[in-house]
Design a protein around this nucleic acid. Structure first.
Lengths: 141, 141
DNA sequence: TCCATATCTGTAATCATTTCAATTGTAAAA
DNA sequence: TTTTACAATTGAAATGATTACAGATATGGA
């Protein structure tokens, strides 16, 4: 499949040698778009790659983060999630269905006084609440 | 000290029985303003309350969060921090000195698109970078 | 093909957090 | 004041996520 080709050259471009496992894990991230935990990636890929080790998933994600092609999402204190979209954008987690939604926001006109002279490297906006779909379901109940 | 009195009635008001440990832990949070981890609270208070158990720190913080007088800060994936200021405000973590700074922001001009019809319950804005003090030090080096 | 090196794997170790049962403290009734 | 019931605290053990490590496997270049 040519998708693998693309991912392979993308990884090389990021300074990562494109092993089978690395390609499959990155592919998982961009196809599923589900902001997965290590457990989710391991569980889902294990049926397809039976020899996969959880350590490899950890190592690979750490590598992706170090090389700047994946970001860590800490919207919840008891689970680390991963996002291959490294642009500055927000994450909404529905406390009812657990799904995480991406959204865009302007961080230009925040004009934050207290940290004016600080050097900003990363911005994370996390919002929790009820998604539209769950809101409807809950009303019906 | 009358501070303890104030905290005692504040806890009662929040539906929390003001035990010695609970008062000291809440006092720690509001006096230090250091957004501590469980470990920090335990270590610092242990010299003053030698019998203190780490489980009590965990239990107490969970109680505070449940009763709505403390919020969890997840700016880092490997450490859960706590803040007795439950208002919506931002947190800046200096990746050099590790200190966490509070800042205020207006979530009106974030101009968020995709989640217009979602019900928002909590908003967390986390920024990482270099604080002014560390910036100066680093330049001098 | 062979070698050197990188990657992957599974196990064991570590660290944060939770569970649980026993002890201690407390407030109110007798 | 003593008793009693219940809540809070404690420390040990269990759990769960993550990391360290050492051996096995795969890979690219000579």
């Amino acid at each position: 499949m040519e998708q693998t080709q693309n991912i392979g050259s993308f990884l090389i471009n990021a300074g990562i040698r494109p092993s089978f496992q690395r390609i499959k894990i990155y592919e998982y991230l961009i196809i599923r778009k589900n902001h997965p935990t290590v457990e989710m990636i391991y569980k889902d890929l294990n049926s397809y790659i039976p020899t996969l080790s959880k350590t490899t998933v950890y190592n690979t994600l750490k590598l992706f983060v170090d090389k700047g092609i994946t970001q860590i999402i800490t919207i919840e204190d008891n689970e680390t999630r991963y996002d291959p979209d490294i642009s500055t954008h927000g994450h909404f987690k529905c406390t009812n269905c657990g799904k995480i939604f991406d959204f865009s926001f302007d961080n230009k006109n925040l004009n934050i006084k207290q940290i004016e002279n600080f050097e900003i490297k990363q911005t994370h906006l996390y919002i929790k609440g009820i998604c539209e779909n769950c809101k409807r379901k809950i009303i019906i109940k």
